[in-house]
Amino acid sequence: MHLCSNGRCLNSTKYKMAINHIDMSFNLEIFNVNNLDLKLPYICTCGIYKNKQHIAPPVRWSAKTDTIMLRETNSLICEYHSDVACPSNADKIWRYTNTDKMLCSNGSCFNEKYKMTFDNNTKTDGNAKISILVIKNFTEEDVREYTCSCKFVSFTKTLEVTNYINMPENLKSSAVYRDNQVIIEISTEKVFPILKCNETIFETLSLCHNSLFCNAHSSSEKKYIRQDMKVKQSYGTTVSNFTFYKVQGELIVDTNGITCSTIALEVKCFVGNRPFIVTVLTEIRCNDIETIGQYIPSASIGLVFIIIIVMICICCEFKMRRKPKHLLCKVKDLTYNKLCKCFNNGQGH
């Protein structure tokens, strides 16, 4: 396909051909360079002579990572490959292309959303110098054309986003106990891709503090459960060529008869390759016996028994004094005296 011939171009808005008749040289100028322009080979022909080359602009920029994180910080990296085209003391500028609005110049930015830094230690290609445009709280509106320039040399292209992650917005979670199961509800108003939850750390803290009143299922323990969250509802919407999902999911965990405990659950979820933790709490009520045990510390049980024995002995002594003694009570031996008191109390005479 011919782009230009003898100074005339088929697409004058994209290409321009200039001929220098003094030294018999000519050049091709390409506007709004994109990724496809950089990948294509270009053939220059003069008579029977041909020369094939790829574009190697002295200035070009690219996204720092292949995956764009929405609502987070992302960076664009501009590389200056020629000391002639871009001297160290030349002005280095980032701007919007369509509005020609300047964003940053020589490290100073005109909006707190942006930050411009330099990194001469990073060598991505030969001896390239690096300037970085940091874009904070990246949104759909930040997908646009950017121009990075040094002196009179500039490079313009549209930021192309094919891979992106939007962490859950308006994330809600809850847990309820029902029929020996904990039902965990997780929902979000906006996420991409769809979140997945498949691992739960299940930790119980017993509310029964007296072992005499507790059953075997009210002990404190910690265990791991692998179980995929069931997506109950999801639907997608498209905003500025970005797709987002609204998701409502449910995760059911068996409690295996646990009673009288607080249950803390940490659910491990993923959005793409980004993990995050959802923490929920619920409580399993104690039965009547376990409830009584909560108010009687284990250390007090022995004291309670001693008090009961003392009260019984006092009662026996009081009743014995009010009633005739049995024949055995005349025996002087201390052991018989004790038996006598109990006997009198039991016989009623």
Rank of each mutant, 00 (worst) to 15 (best):
L103G: 02
S105R: 12
S211Y: 13
C150T: 05
P168Y: 00
L195I: 03
I130T: 15
C197N: 02
C148E: 08
E145T: 01
N137P: 00
R95F: 08
F138C: 02
N98W: 09
Y146A: 06
T97K: 14
E112V: 13
V191C: 05
K115S: 15
G126E: 09
F192T: 03
Q181M: 13
Y177A: 06
E160S: 07
N120Y: 15
K123W: 10
F118H: 11
I165E: 00
M102W: 06
F192W: 10
V191D: 01
T117Y: 10
N127P: 06
I93A: 04
T139G: 09
K151D: 14
L103K: 09
K92Q: 14
T139Y: 03
C104K: 09
R144Q: 10
K196P: 00
E160K: 11
I186Y: 01
S131D: 15
T122C: 06
A90Q: 09
D179W: 10
L207M: 11
G126V: 03
K172S: 06
T117V: 15
E199D: 01
F152L: 10
E185N: 11
A175W: 02
S206T: 12
I130G: 08
I130H: 14
S173P: 01
F202M: 02
S149W: 07
D179M: 08
N98L: 05
P168F: 04
K196I: 08
L205S: 03
Q181P: 00
E160N: 07
I132D: 10
P168R: 00
K129I: 14
S211K: 14
G126D: 09
L212Y: 13
E140C: 07
L133Q: 06
E160Q: 09
F213E: 01
R95Q: 10
C109F: 06
T204E: 05
T162E: 04
K115C: 12
C208T: 03
N198T: 03
A128P: 02
T156V: 12
I93N: 09
S206N: 03
C104S: 10
L103T: 10
Y177F: 12
T204S: 14
S108G: 01
V176D: 12
N89C: 02
V143N: 04
V161Y: 02
N210A: 05
L207D: 07
C148G: 14
K129V: 14
T122F: 14
D100G: 13
G126L: 04
S108H: 13
C208F: 06
E141K: 15
N137G: 01
I135N: 02
I165M: 01
Y164L: 08
D100V: 15
M116Q: 14
I201K: 07
I135C: 04
F202N: 00
L159D: 00
G107F: 10
C104M: 11
T147V: 03
A175L: 08
L171H: 06
E141F: 14
F152W: 08
E112S: 13
I130L: 15
T204Q: 04
N210I: 09
T147M: 08
S211M: 10
L212I: 12
E140D: 06
E160D: 08
E185D: 11
